[in-house]
């Protein structure tokens, strides 16, 4: 049972980690809790269902499942990145020099707006993703693992690795880290801060889109309010690992998934959502910088 619960926890944790990366990157650069990030993930899940349904209706799925699948993922990532970019331009950019609470309130506004936008255009009832793989899977050490679980865990780790390499090795990645350290200095050495911020939002949203599609496939069920709770949990994961730190977000996501899974099975499943919040409060009280984060003095 323990091994099964660990597999369950890893699957959910991988999804949290992918969303948490978006929070942590934006916070690292703008010191903004992008409250709307969970909604981008929700948009990704919806886009997955809409686009896959579209390709099925034009007959592409029956022709080539792999192609229509690849197109669905590519287009969803594209659209979600576009949404992330647009949200930043409209709701956060004008507030870059405003008091700290203003962008946070604006982010809450974006979150409410996107939720209701999807509810009004796509309806309030649950959307169902066609069951492609069924319950196919294999047994390992007394646990039942489906291929989708393997896919989710695998894709999450690959994307995290790719992101880590991107941030540490490429020119843009280095620029990101420079902006995160000091925006003014970065612009003085010729880094275009605005475009770095845009790229951050685009990458974060793309990762959230992948998480959204995988979740839509895994559960087969999507509604317009999944973004809120997933967003809060992913944020918790980011704080847990140390907000602003990319390895921290990965670790935090996995850790939170395991806590939830084990807590729900050994303590009580009715309080499942409360574990994330309890962990969050405890972490912020004991070690506000998180496990991987560095504590910084507030600037005067």
């Amino acid at each position: 049972m323990l091994f099964q619960q660990i597999i369950n926890g890893l699957t959910v944790g991988g999804v949290y980690a992918l969303i948490a990366l978006g929070y942590t990157m934006v916070y690292g650069i703008l010191e903004l809790i992008n409250f709307a990030h969970g909604e981008i993930y929700m948009l990704g899940a919806y886009l997955g269902i809409i686009l896959f349904g579209f390709f099925t209706s034009v007959g592409l799925t029956s022709h080539s499942l792999a192609l229509s699948f690849a197109l669905t993922i590519a287009l969803s990532v594209l659209f979600c990145s576009a949404y992330g970019f647009t949200v930043e331009r409209i709701a956060y950019k004008p507030l870059r020099n405003a008091p700290r609470l203003s962008p946070l309130i604006s982010a809450i506004g974006v979150s409410i707006f996107l939720q209701n936008y999807v509810m009004l255009t796509q309806g309030a009832t649950d959307k169902v993703f066609p069951d492609l793989l069924g319950s196919a899977g294999f047994d390992l050490l007394g646990a039942r693992i489906t291929y989708l679980q393997v896919l989710i865990i695998g894709v999450s780790f690959l994307l995290m690795l790719a992101l880590h390499l991107y941030v540490t090795k490429t020119r843009m990645g280095k620029a990101m880290r420079a902006v995160a350290q000091d925006k003014v200095m970065a612009s003085l050495v010729g880094i275009n801060v605005d475009s770095v911020i845009s790229v951050t939002f685009i990458i974060g949203s793309g990762l959230a889109a992948v998480a959204g599609i995988m979740v839509a496939m895994y559960y087969g069920l999507v509604n317009y309010f999944i973004g809120y709770i997933a967003g809060i949990k992913a944020f918790t994961a980011a704080v847990l690992g140390g907000i602003g730190s990319i390895p921290g977000a990965m670790f935090g996501g996995i850790f939170l998934g395991l806590i939830e899974s084990l807590g729900a099975s050994y303590i009580s499943s009715e309080y499942k959502d409360a574990y994330a919040f309890a962990v969050l409060i405890v972490i912020l009280l004991i070690r506000p910088a998180g496990i991987f984060g560095k504590s910084t003095e507030e600037k005067v």
Binding site: M1, N8, Y219, I226, S261, S265, S269, E270, K272, D273
Partner: peptide, 17 residues
């Protein structure tokens, strides 16, 4: 005998138990 959360999507933990 136990409860789950309405609106939650992941019930594998409770089912495993």
């Amino acid at each position: 005998y136990g409860g789950i959360i309405q609106g939650d999507k992941d019930f594998k933990t409770v089912l495993t138990a």
